[in-house]
């Protein structure tokens, strides 16, 4: 049933959010640490190991893939509720700090990618 997929997805997000808050508390940080990432890992692991003890049926999967397809519309709504006016009018310090951080971070992506290729190449060669 489709609702099983939706419920499973909810269970993953709630567990992840809880564990993320717990991790934040343990680290003494006033933030959720990786809750969404943990929830994603839970869902991936469930999907990966389903079929051995239990099967994730096609109907159940529909409950998840629907929300996956709703991702872009939700992101568009997210864009429309951003505080863009405050961002644009917050002055040169904020604009320059934000812009330079983005430009340099973009520039680092290929550098780290090469490093990542080297790391995974070495582990493959070693095994």
């Amino acid at each position: 049933m489709i609702v099983y997929g939706v419920a499973l997805l909810s269970a993953c997000l709630l567990s992840g959010a809880f564990l993320g808050d717990l991790l934040g508390e343990m680290l003494g940080v006033q933030a959720n640490v990786g809750g969404v990432g943990i929830a994603m890992l839970l869902l991936i692991l469930l999907h990966h190991y389903s079929g051995r003890q239990f099967a994730l049926g096609a109907e159940t999967a529909k409950g998840i893939t629907f929300w996956s397809a709703m991702y872009i519309p939700i992101v568009i709504a997210m864009a429309a509720k951003q505080n863009v006016y405050a961002a644009v009018t917050s002055g040169w310090v904020a604009v320059l700090a934000g812009v330079l951080a983005v430009v340099l971070s973009f520039a680092m992506v290929p550098v780290l990618s090469r490093m990542g290729n080297k790391i995974s190449g070495e582990t493959e060669g070693g095994s």
Partner: peptide, 30 residues
């Protein structure tokens, strides 16, 4: 609809098609 709750819900849903191996392989550099 565009708040953190639905955003996170949809992000987790996109993980349904993700490959565990790809995540593992790039975990360190990530």
């Amino acid at each position: 609809l565009g708040g953190a709750m639905f955003r996170d819900f949809a992000i987790v849903a996109t993980a349904f098609g993700a490959e565990l191996d790809a995540l593992k392989r790039s975990g360190l550099v990530g």
